[in-house]
Design a protein around this nucleic acid. Structure first.
Length: 424
RNA sequence: AGGAGCGUAGCUCAAAGGCAGAGCACCGCGCUGUGGACGCGGUGGUUGCGGGUUCGAGUCCCGUCGCUCCUCCCA
């Protein structure tokens, strides 16, 4: 039986990794412009972190998290998202003691046990930013601006994107909203799925993003969080809208947007592509003012977003080749062609010298014919072919063929490095 | 989670119960030491896997695994 990659976990092959590297580099540069510095947290955390941070009743933790005991029986989890980890690290290392706003970004694999489909894998990759330590709605606006900037920088048209925006209030007005939802759903209790009947008691907010059809139907006319905001949350939201207007960033208020994670407070948003199908969200995020405290740290407000690399790659990959602004990795500069076995040792020495001089160089190890090897050199995009045969090596020379012009020149072996360096 | 479709060579796909094929790719030769063309030849498959029906299954049936799409949720 052939061993294959496990379901929903895919290999990213060299043809694709150049695009990945390009996107990653753009992300790093873009977020650096906004003052974010990278943080790398472990892929494995205690399962408890996500239960407390993301929320026990969320689908992500409840149904989709990879959980397993380690050899001591400690319950561990593959991270389903990174915000909880970042905040955990922020608390653990006392980053709050440095004052001001901590701006952190990350990039890496996440894991969710879901049914895989286009743009949704079980191991997928997210990039994200977290700004910790400020309640200022201007920071929400800046984070959203960064999201837009990143998409623009990657060459996505603004018209092809749209921002869904909502406020789900704070812990102070959450009970009122929860009560309103419960009151609304109670008469429909029998129509709800068993999951939602449980959610009705535990966390009625989650009914709003249940995937059952009838639950969707029932939820359509449910009370809206925007109508249950306290004065502070109302003001925060209005201020944010003002800043977005000032920045010229379009948004669509979406009262159904609650996001699948419990830690969100106030601002929630998603930036989606009109060019994608069912999985259209390119990135999503919001404010999480209670998360740090819930994880045992000092009360620290935060706001951020996370985006999916696979989605981004999909959208970028579907564009016309001419629109693509990433470069493919170039081939070796020099390709060595030892004519017979006897010249291989010399070829290896020259290869080593060229590479140490910063000149990319390669040769064939597959035992192919000389003609074939020259073809491969051209295919690989080499600029020079270097023939090493008895004839020229006996004179201490190699024959350099310029593969663009076809011009050949004999060059002493000791001068190959300056010779190749001196040409553009 | 629900619905639909598809799994045949490395890739794209044929074979409508009767000899598993083509194109591309790969390798060699023509060209004993020199280019993407051309010509000739060659390697490559337990038809995803497991059962069943049949004289006979890539084809029909059941199961299973995987992928794709839709609904939904989300990254």
């Amino acid at each position: 039986m052939k061993v294959e990659a496990v379901r929903g976990m895919t290999d990213i092959l060299p043809e694709e990794t150049s695009l990945w590297q390009y996107v990653e580099a753009e992300i790093r540069e873009a977020v650096a412009l906004y003052g974010y510095r990278e943080i790398r947290t472990p892929i494995v955390e205690r399962a408890e972190l996500f239960a407390r941070g993301v929320g026990e009743t969320t689908d992500i933790v409840h149904k989709e998290m990879y959980v397993f005991p380690d050899k001591k029986g400690q319950l561990l989890a593959l991270r389903p998202e990174a915000t909880a980890s970042v905040v955990r690290a922020y608390i653990e290392h006392g980053l709050y003691a440095r004052g001001g706003v901590a701006k952190l970004y990350y990039l890496g694999p996440m894991f969710r046990y879901e049914k895989p489909q286009k743009g949704r894998k079980r191991q997928f990759h997210q990039y994200g930013v977290e700004a910790l330590g400020s309640l200022d709605p201007a920071l929400d606006a800046e984070v959203i601006d960064l999201a837009w900037y990143l998409m623009e920088r990657l060459g996505l048209r603004r018209e092809g994107l749209f921002l869904r925006l909502n406020s789900i209030g704070c812990p102070r007005d959450r009970p009122r909203y929860r009560e309103a939802l419960r009151e609304y759903f109670l008469p429909h209790r029998e129509g709800l799925c068993t999951d939602c009947q449980r959610r009705l008691d535990e966390n009625p907010l989650r009914i709003l993003d249940c995937n059952g059809h009838t639950c969707q139907e029932i939820a359509r006319d449910a009370p809206r969080s925007l109508d249950y905001l306290c004065e502070g949350c109302r003001a925060h939201f209005d201020e944010l809208l003002g800043y977005l207007d000032a920045l010229g960033l379009a948004y669509e208020k979406d009262p159904k947007l609650v996001r699948g994670l419990d830690y969100y407070t106030r601002t929630v948003f998603e930036l989606a592509s009109r060019d994608l199908g069912a999985q259209d969200a390119l990135l999503g995020g919001g404010r999480y003012d209670g998360l740090a405290e819930a994880l045992g740290g000092p009360p620290t407000p935060g706001v951020g977003f996370a985006g999916g690399m696979e989605r981004l790659i999909l959208v970028l990959g579907e564009r016309e080749p001419g629109e693509r602004c990433y470069r493919l990795i170039s081939g070796p500069r020099a390709y060595l062609l030892p004519v017979a076995e006897e010249e291989k040792a010399e070829a290896l020495k020259i290869l080593a010298a060229l590479r140490r001089a910063g000149i990319s160089a390669d040769m064939d190890y597959a035992g192919r014919s000389l003609r074939k090897r020259l073809q491969v050199a051209v295919q690989r995009g080499a600029r020079y072919a270097l023939f090493l045969g008895e004839e020229e090596l006996s004179r201490g020379e190699g024959k350099v063929r310029d593969l663009e012009t076809g011009v050949e020149e004999y060059v002493p072996v000791g001068e190959l490095v300056p010779y190749l360096q001196g040409r553009s």
